[in-house]
Amino acid sequence: MLKRFALLLFAAFLLGPLSVNANAADRTGTGMHIWFDTGGPVGGTYNTVVYNGAKAAAEDIDAKITFVYSDWSPEKMIENFKTGLAEKPTGIVVMGHPGDAAYGPFIKEARENGIIVTAIDTPLPETQTQYQSQGFGYIGPDAYNQGAAMARECIQRFDLKKGDRAFVWGLKRLPTRGLRATAILDVFEKEGVIVDYLEISPEVDKDPSIGTPIVTGYLAAHPDCKVMVIDHGALTAQMENFLRTAAVKPEDIDVAGFSLSPATASAIKNGYVDLIGDAQPFLLGYFSVLQIALTEKYGFSGLNVDTGGGFIGADNLSLIEPLAKQGLR
């Protein structure tokens, strides 16, 4: 009995590491190190979902992943990229906000050192053309297409006609991100809708609770406004509060916005928000990590995935809401 037990132990000692190695060898990302810029601040609503996607992918493929945060600052993104270069990872995932010109020399340096780079959220078209065959892809919404799709959906769902008034609250000042607001304005204006555009101030951008008097003031000045499009996730989440303060009833105005959060879900249920454009940020994190690993292991070229095609309303909310609470949608 004792002999059999000793043999069993000996076999486990020999085969144990082998089986672990065999399992590890099966995983696509084993031994790889991915440097990942989440783009926003620590705990930011949107980039935390991106983070969750990247973390899930890294766990699934057994890759080591390092997260950095850039507070949506292009300068900080470049700084983080330089730090990433010094770490010599297998690959770097960047948000494209600084643009091709700013990233160009550093991505060139990365490629010369054998580091794979890929972009998410905001495309880097020139860099992608140059390095797509070497794994440089783009995962994320096409800002202009997403904005245009939202505007068309608003026209269709809310029966907007020539001469109707709409309010758009956006961030046109941000180079590529601003294309979403630009597209909304373009489609509305082409349709003959009267559009009042308001740029989101840096304070309101960081702390949506400050936005209340702005909505009240605007609606008091323009009681004929039929639709409000809020090109900002955190502000969309607070539209119920804004409209309650402005004494506007849910049926008085149609509201469209972006990114689903628990507060937005609550606003949809109560009828204060009617339509949400979903950029599916979890996919940005997940697919970009896979992109690096697949390129490193199998030499695949860069993927081009548009994640911005989804819309959420009262009709499909019940499916998506639990996922939003977990930071997956």
Partner: peptide, 20 residues
Amino acid sequence: MVCMEMASWWPTQGEGYMLL
């Protein structure tokens, strides 16, 4: 009170108040 007014808490709460 901000949490009660907004019926939610968010991680960047307070950041917009510095200038004000």
